[in-house]
């Protein structure tokens, strides 16, 4: 089931914050694209340190973002030599994503997708901005 955030008639700046919880190394990058064409995703925000967090920041005006799909992609590298511990840490990774500035106001999502390719974990949050 896809996530949606209602920008509605708002023409102000829409903001995004990402909070990644992991004991691994994390780097995040958010981009937007139009699903119906082949144009590449346009980066709108990225993390500044290995927490993988993106501090609350404007990612574009409502008119620019409306109708696009936002993807926050996080690469997590798990450290250590024990594969079992890494597998446990992969399960424990969490992601929290907050959008604000649209008609929906501040809305938080806590269920990103995860794909585990030891020692990497890809944490992916996808949302339609309508």
């Amino acid at each position: 089931m896809s996530n949606t955030y209602n920008i509605g008639t708002s023409n102000g700046q829409v903001s995004l914050s990402v909070d990644i919880t992991t004991v691994g190394l994390a780097a995040s990058r958010a981009s937007v694209l139009i699903v119906s064409d082949d144009s590449p995703g346009v980066p709108v925000a990225h993390s500044v340190d290995a927490t993988g967090d993106i501090a609350n920041q404007a990612i574009g005006k409502g008119t620019f973002l409306k109708g696009k799909r936002l993807t926050a992609f996080t690469l997590v590298n798990l450290t250590g030599t024990d594969p079992e511990s890494r597998a446990t840490e992969a399960v424990a990774i969490r992601g929290s994503y907050t959008l604000s500035g649209g008609d929906d106001g501040a809305k938080t999502f806590n269920s990103p997708l995860k794909s585990y390719q030891d020692p990497s974990v890809y944490v992916i949050f996808i949302i339609d901005l309508v």
């Binding site: 990058r29 699903v35 993807t71 992609f73």
Partner: peptide
Amino acid sequence: NSWHEHALEDISSNQDLIDAISR
């Protein structure tokens, strides 16, 4: 810090795959 800088570049170089996931 070096890992984070390079990881962002790694993500960027895989933008085609990230876009495919998004679609």
